[in-house]
Design a protein around this nucleic acid. Sequence first.
DNA 1: GTTGACTATATTGTCGACATTCCTCGTATT
DNA 2: AATACGAGGAATGTCGACAATATAGTCAAC
Lengths: 222, 222
Amino acid sequence: MSIAVITEQAVTNADKTFFQLRSDIVEGDIPAGSKLSETELSTKYQVSRAVIREAINRLEACHLVERRANVGARVVSLTPDGLIQLYQVREALEGMAARLAAKNMSDEEIADLTALLDNHFQTVKDGNSYYQEAGDLDFHYRIILGSKNQHLIEVLVNGIYHLIRMYRVQLGMAGPRVTTAFDEHKHVVQAIANRDEELAEMLMRRHILYSKNNIERKLLQS
Amino acid sequence: MSIAVITEQAVTNADKTFFQLRSDIVEGDIPAGSKLSETELSTKYQVSRAVIREAINRLEACHLVERRANVGARVVSLTPDGLIQLYQVREALEGMAARLAAKNMSDEEIADLTALLDNHFQTVKDGNSYYQEAGDLDFHYRIILGSKNQHLIEVLVNGIYHLIRMYRVQLGMAGPRVTTAFDEHKHVVQAIANRDEELAEMLMRRHILYSKNNIERKLLQS
DNA sequence: GTTGACTATATTGTCGACATTCCTCGTATT
DNA sequence: AATACGAGGAATGTCGACAATATAGTCAAC
């Protein structure tokens, strides 16, 4: 009941290769900024170059690689400025998502969301930091899906979130901010439950802004 | 001096096919909702299926077509609800773009933008509605580019704007709203010139919201 | 020593053919 | 008559080979 699963089923061979490559890039097994040789990858993954090309095209679509004609594809480079820009987009989109969720989520979905937060509260109270990784994701995913806006869902789930995870993994951002983030989540849910669109957006934006500031601070001190 | 050109140079064959197909879809030469047969298109455009597939992949990336594994690609269908959702995303993103533009545009760029609006004022005063099409686009593009946020620029220019144009062309939305929109533009620019990020975002969001309401009204009455 | 052109090589772009999957339509059975 | 099943056809998925392009390295000229 607690995990909002995003089902991505691989039916074709290019699908599998795409998922594999995406995972390898996000998790850093393929380093940021490195070149993606089609022939090399085709031998590595035991598929034809056509499959690799299709996978790379899709990776480009989610902004994980950049292609130049007749030259090739490179994994994107991670820069502090890039992360800031990413969070600016995220703030705008998830703010809108929260607004729309306050308008469009069913009472049942809101009840589920509240129950989810109660669960999180238990884990946080027990001093377990399991929350940070999966719990935070779950919360944000539910609100994004709750917006019922296909474009919003697409851009955030298939695009931005993989990039954010890539930054998280490779620039190493675990950090505290667990308990305060929990309170922020609670207030967002309350606003949604009250169908207060304006407040829901504002609180979500602030939540993401705080998160950005927190990250910025860490980047500067290291 | 008045047109913020977006240079898209076709170097490869797939590039040309992609541009051609995108134009054909947006302008309605290929009807919304219709199926895109790879073999058919490859004979029509005199290129191999591989080129067509690459082009279709890119079209999918900008949300102009939808693909299903082992079945094929279809041009997206245009629905009133889809247009509403599109404008919700646009409001969020361009609002943020205006905020960032107020922060990041150079004084020179702002001066250019002001001059541009003065030009528009002349055309509007002369009763010329040339404004609506190119002028409006030019204004919005400059602010989007002025945000200096690559993600924002990418999503808006390569994704959303083609879709919006597709709706404009095919659901036929010219309409008045020229003079009032001009005033709204003027106020946005003023806020940017004053480096008032908060107000710039608010005014831009309102400008897009009005536009959305205007379109909604037209859709309902027809 | 530096710059320029040229060649060699490796990589990407493009093609046609084959494999696999889905959809349609006809047939048979309940 | 309605449904289930299966054969046929057409479309997409995948492959290996060839063509076109960029990069690196060499050699020559100034």
